[in-house]
Nucleic acid binder design. Structure first.
Lengths: 95, 95
DNA sequence: GCTATATTTGCCAAATAATGTCAAGACAAT
DNA sequence: ATTGTCTTGACATTATTTGGCAAATATAGC
């Protein structure tokens, strides 16, 4: 989700990975892995990327969160929806 | 969620923490922390607990998953629902 | 009160996971 | 073939998690 999206955005903007790696202050190898989903960006780095691509930070943050959640539930696809809806319900309460 | 539930179950069954700690092969202090939500049980241990309490493993697993997910989204309550529903949608596709 | 048992807490060491870099390889495009 | 870009794997470093121990605090039962 997140990784596919930032790759998409990077291509659209015709930027080399090197440029984004520099913006994030990491090695190009690391950035490459981020784009492949083998590494996660830190939350703080999301806003940097959104600036580089000139998109809404929230948009990327949602994808980022979704990835984290997917990682957790991916081994329990069958019951995952129940757990997720449970969390959604809980969020409604605790606001 | 998970922690409250197993405490509930333990009280209902009138078991001391010591007994469950033994079943899980961990220190009572550690078990105490699990019940307080300061530690997570391993996935494998969930089935042990469900046997001890004589409840459906799936029931506990759902609560356990929900906890993991909550941990991740708790700092982004406002946008969390969007991320969670996105994951649910994705799960529907990939089966 | 006193004793025994149960639960909780803080701190430490070991285990595990996450992160980043380097060096080398693959892949285009020219 | 050379240049620039992207990818991969091994490795070191760092952060996080985990469990145990010991001490502290509760909770009963007498």
């Amino acid at each position: 989700m997140f990784s596919e999206r930032i790759k998409e955005l990077r291509i659209q903007n015709q930027m080399p990975q090197r440029q984004l790696a520099a913006a994030l202050d990491i090695d190009t190898a690391t950035y490459c892995k981020i784009e492949k989903g083998e590494r996660k960006v830190k939350k703080e780095q999301i806003s940097v990327l959104s600036k580089m691509f000139n998109v809404n930070t929230e948009h990327l943050l949602i994808l980022w969160l979704a990835d984290q959640v997917s990682d957790i539930v991916s081994n329990d696809k069958r019951i995952a929806p129940k757990a997720l809806l449970l969390v959604v319900e809980n969020l409604k309460q605790n606001i």
